[in-house]
Computed example of a mutant assay.
Amino acid sequence: MRRAEAQNDGTLFLALDTYGRIGGIQRFNQRVIAALAEISGDNGWKQPAVHIMRDGKADIPETTAAAIRAFGSWRLGFIVHSAVTAQSCKILFLGHINLLPVGLLCKLLSPRIKLVLFVHGDEVWNDPAHRRMRFYEPLMARALSRIASVSAFTASRMQEAFKLPHEKFTLFPNAVDDIDRQPQKSGRNILAVARLDRHDRGKNIDALIKAMVLLKRRNVECVLQVVGEGPLRSELASLARELAVEERVELLGRVSDARLAEAYSQACLFAMPSSKEGFGIVFLEAWLHGLPVICGTQDAAVEIITDGVDGFAVNPSDIETLAERMAMLLADPGMAAAMGEAGVEKVRSRYLMRHFKGNLEKIIAELS
């Protein structure tokens, strides 16, 4: 990008709640803001502008190198100020498909601006169980210069649903921050970390509980620990009691960061045979703790996990195979450790902040 242009034409990032809530998209948005600020600082460009709906002023951190403005529930103010700010920007990043109408308005008022939409998963799959595509979205999406998808799986689902050309999409994986790993303690815990809202049935935590029945019959000593809160927690507890494995299933609810780190250190494998992952950042986090992982075969997780190398991919409906893979890792600590280390190397070579920033720099360069 030419420095003179960058100084005169900035970037604008529009996002929904980013600091006021905890979640995958929220952490992604925070990473985008940090990366844009670093890129601008590295090149001597002006601060990126960031407008956030739903967050209040009190939610915004004081130490940030971006010009962040929070609009709370003031939707009209968000729209008007975004349209005005966009007139002095060259690239407008949209953090969610729901912001597409605002992006199109900015494009109509400033035709030269380039629109980039970040997509994460089921919000663009046109799956009635999660979010139906709005009738106007395919037409509006034609105005996008790039669609930055966290996975090829999500890009393919959106391309099919929205009837968009393949050329609009670019792969933009999520990332994690490296950690100082705690020493692994000798234990036989199987760990799962997931939200337990009603729309998260596709995480298939119930399949893990059913697999625990088979492991109990085979006298495989282990405990399934599930970190996460939501309405499904009580349903899962009832299922464990019904299947007579309640002594082998611990539903820990929402825990502190320190308690979560302890749970990772006490686990010997991480399992979540989901069928709704748009990317699967939980597997990256498990790898950083040195754990082998078990994912599902019906979503984007299979793009990340190499079956038999850094984990196993199992159809969540195949409870027998799921139990077998869990038993294999429990029975062979050496294999489990080797898979976990392979996962650590994969994260450090592909999925850290420097890779995220580099991918964002590439998009900016291509559109400048």
Rank of each mutant, 00 (worst) to 15 (best):
Q87K: 14
W74V: 02
L352T: 07
S40P: 04
R248M: 14
R241S: 14
F279Q: 03
V124C: 04
L367S: 09
V293P: 00
R188D: 09
L215N: 03
C106H: 00
G44R: 12
L251G: 08
A161K: 14
I305D: 01
G121H: 01
Y351E: 06
V309W: 04
S368T: 09
H96C: 10
G44T: 10
E123S: 08
L236P: 03
V102K: 03
V227C: 13
S234M: 07
I281W: 00
Y19M: 05
L284V: 11
V245H: 11
L104S: 05
E285S: 02
A15W: 02
D299T: 04
A35K: 06
A86W: 05
S149K: 13
G20R: 07
S317W: 09
E167P: 00
N43T: 05
G202P: 13
R198A: 14
I363H: 06
I25M: 10
Q184I: 05
G56T: 07
W287Q: 01
G296C: 03
R218D: 15
T63R: 15
A161W: 13
L260M: 06
R259E: 12
K114T: 01
V249A: 04
T297D: 02
I60D: 08
D180C: 07
E320A: 10
H199Y: 13
R354H: 08
R188G: 03
I147F: 11
L252S: 06
L164N: 07
P138Q: 14
A34G: 06
R241G: 02
L117N: 13
